[in-house]
Design a protein around this nucleic acid. Structure first.
Lengths: 221, 221
DNA sequence: AGTTTATGCAAGTACATGCTTGCAGGCAAG
DNA sequence: CTTGCCTGCAAGCATGTACTTGCATAAACT
């Protein structure tokens, strides 16, 4: 009973917050959205700020499921899937993230809610790139230094973030559909890293290599 | 006198807005920040919404000065300067932009204020890339299609945007200093486009390897 | 001088918002 | 059935906020 109410209130608060931000999330609006009386909010959470903080914790608790493989097999495909998953996730939270980033100005205590997710994703990608490097996927010429690796990771993360945040606002900036753009991001990323990517000539039979043995990276075939 | 007051009020409104957003920009706060009586706001602008709208128009009027050269000479250097200028500009407006993006949810009429700048910058970069292509800076191999060009532009703009918006929040994601990162973005961009990085490299065409490998640039200096 | 204009100051109005209190009903456990 | 708990409902309180009004002052213009 009461737990069901708590959940409904928290979810309603998340919806209201995504649309109106911290200041605009009035207790009246949240109560209406949840279908409960306004007093119930105070009886459960004591104050509006406490309710919104609970909502933040409830929404930003880490949810695993989008992980890069421990041993890389097909970097292009694996990265593309990972990037796509993160992109759709961020698109789903887009209005929420926008409000959160702006509310950080007045509520610095929300900082971890905004940074934990992206930071863990970045370190995950960094580890994957590390593995790519140590397992012979990276062509060894001087251009791919450690600094370049780091910059490539930063650039890919930034491109995916910007795409998920801005595509709806500025369609001119994103002339291609999402799938095409994401694939291009990953391709540029791998090219910048010095990872040989097989061209689309293999696209006719796409699911034939599932072994963990890395294909010979230097050979262009 | 009265015009001086208008200007001071508008600038004060911009500062208050950057910190507190539309809802948090109370007439009392703006008046205090401007050093005028609250009534003066209403006598000048009639209502709070009108004042903030004026402030938006005043802040988002196009300011030229950051243009890419009509005929490309040194793409890496020119792009780096252009990217750096845009990055510092966006960093300076960072809190303002954050509030604006979140307020778009409730004030869709602010849409052009948020999109005009980035859209024009993007089209400018697109034109420059077009010129690079027609003037022989781009090596012609099949990997750089028109779709790749478009994606590269999108990716560079996204990376610069994300860097300027998120670097202060998530330093872990940006381990390198700004200058180094921006240089790397531009280098990856040019490499993805198939543009030779150094003038020396474009002079000596050494293509002893396969055709899908871009010319190896000079590492560090 | 006289008039206009811009501003400050004090007060007030109407409404929104966070939050409290008191009362009544439903509902499950003892 | 009684008790305790949760909930809804109505009202109220204190504060904040947008906005108005009336009056005084001082500078600028005629």
């Amino acid at each position: 009973m009461t737990d069901d109410h708590r959940h409904r209130i928290l979810q309603a608060a998340a919806r209201v917050y995504a649309q109106h931000g911290w200041r605009g999330s009035t207790t009246k609006r949240i109560a209406e959205e949840a279908g409960v009386n306004e007093v119930t909010l105070f009886r459960h959470f004591g104050a509006k700020d406490a309710l919104l903080e609970q909502m933040m914790l409830h929404l930003t608790e880490p949810k695993e499921g989008m992980t890069l493989p421990a041993v890389p097999g097909d970097p292009a495909a694996e990265l593309e899937g990972w990037v796509r998953a993160h992109h759709t996730e961020m698109c789903a939270r887009r209005p929420f993230i926008r409000q959160l980033v702006s509310d950080l100005q007045e509520h610095p205590d929300l900082h971890p809610c905004a940074t934990n997710g992206p930071n863990s994703a970045t370190s995950q990608l960094r580890g994957y790139v590390e593995r790519l490097h140590t397992m012979g996927f990276v062509e060894h010429h001087d251009s791919t230094s450690a600094a370049d690796q780091s910059a490539a990771v930063t650039m890919l993360m930034g491109a995916v973030f910007a795409d998920s945040m801005n595509r709806d606002l500025m369609p001119e900036m994103f002339p291609q559909p999402v799938d095409v753009s994401l694939r291009s991001y990953v391709r540029f990323f791998l090219r910048g890293l010095g990872v040989a990517l097989r061209l689309e000539t293999v696209a006719t039979s796409d699911r034939d290599q599932s072994s963990s043995v890395p294909p010979s990276p230097v050979g262009s075939e």
